[in-house]
Write a protein that binds this DNA or RNA. Structure first.
Lengths: 143, 143, 143, 143
DNA sequence: GTGGTCTAGACCACC
DNA sequence: GTGGTCTAGACCACA
């Protein structure tokens, strides 16, 4: 909490990748989540490039392989693609043509919602909170 | 691929604890989540008892210590308490008197919401889905 | 915290023995500490009798042997004696004729003081707090 | 009676972790208390690193998991943090901005004070003794 | 190399 | 019988 070991990278284009060395969440996952969140928020837009593994790793002061692992995961989940010149490019958002929500996603959502419910928050309070988080995400997008 | 190695325990009172040995999620966390979800759903009600570590572990075919760890975590997070007579008891739900949502919870929610957004689901679709999950959780409660 | 499983016994003479079934502290120790504290506070005075094991155990809703164990400990530590009629009697306070503080006591005190110090309380704050706790203990005594 | 089975670890930086295998106090708690005490004494200073679980365990001749448990507890209580690069680091002392003393701490203090009172030590003697223990703790700090 | 998880078997304190 | 502690050895995820 105190001297939170946070390390960051800021791009010219405006996006940002920060990690917290003290978090229990694996660094490679922090990078993934950071990218995904900013795609959702429209800060990272389709066609935009991410820094190379080496550049990002040295900027963050972490191992080259760790960044690579994050990128592999993002590629594998379809958020980005690796072009011929080895540059990571943000993909188009698939426009909700999916058949539906991923059951694994639903299960995770159910767990996190349950935590709130079992701590005494009612549905309305939760929905309002989620609405505000979603607005927070979407707000940047409209600009 | 694999015949999902699911193991379960069903109580007389109606609740259920199931785990999937093939899941990448740690077993002790699966137990925690299972309990928390059922507290949220009102299947596990305050005052109700959980089976002893040894009994549950043998029923699930897992190690005694693994159950113990799950229970310790639940105790530590305040969902249950350990009676000196040695029965784990579900706590009262604190009735939303909390000052607000835990920032860590909010951050996790933001990440999972972002995943949906960046896969092309818009806010409305997401809200509708969450509403239905919440109703699923709450529905059992009202009975 | 909620329905804190507290059980108690109140004597005609004014002293009180309460235990918390949810505490991680063993019941027999809770009884010992309760008695010792009240001796210190002068609520339990030399010559006074404690209830029989059976009576206290049934009043507290706990096992007979548990009370017995607490009493044995108190006897062994010299706080009380068992008279011919098997009644437990509070001993005289030895009037500080001890050679000094028990090293084990000092070590325990050092640990608990260290906890406060390492949480950012300075010596003065701690001394003031201890003074007030001591006054709380002694206040009843003077009456 | 027994040749007290004491085992220790001495760091280059000057701190020390010793345990007594014959003590009734759990080993993992001895480690915790040892660290907390030395934080309070200023021997362990914020930013300093503790040895890895494996290294300390082999130095102390105890099991790896036992050290691990001690460390987990220290992390959970906020005395240290675990860096993603996997080194346990001493936290900043929160500078007494706490709202007050933890009621559990107060209760423990009351019990230990009562023991002294009921053994015939008066308030002044106790305060003087505590003062000296506190000075013992703080003395190392000022250097 | 680190810590995290799981299994397994042992002993003890408590009730 | 219960949970708490300790030991021991295995595998995995992470960096």
């Amino acid at each position: 909490m105190k001297t939170s070991a946070i390390s960051g990278w800021k791009s010219q284009e405006g996006y940002t990748i920060t990690i917290d060395l003290n978090s229990s969440k694996p660094i490679y996952l922090q990078i993934c989540d950071s990218v995904i969140t900013q795609i959702a928020m429209g800060i990272l837009t389709p066609g935009e490039k991410l820094p190379s593994s080496r550049r990002l790793s040295s900027a963050l002061g972490i191992n080259y392989h760790t960044v690579n692992r994050a990128y592999s995961q993002l590629i594998q989940e379809g958020y980005v693609t690796l072009d011929r010149r080895k540059r990571i490019t943000i993909n188009e958002i698939p426009e909700g043509k999916r058949s539906g929500f991923d059951p694994i996603w639903v299960e995770r959502m159910k767990v996190i919602l349950s935590e709130a419910v079992s701590k005494g928050f009612n549905s309305d309070m939760i929905m309002v909170k989620i609405q505000s988080i979603l607005e927070d995400i979407e707000s940047t997008k409209d600009e």
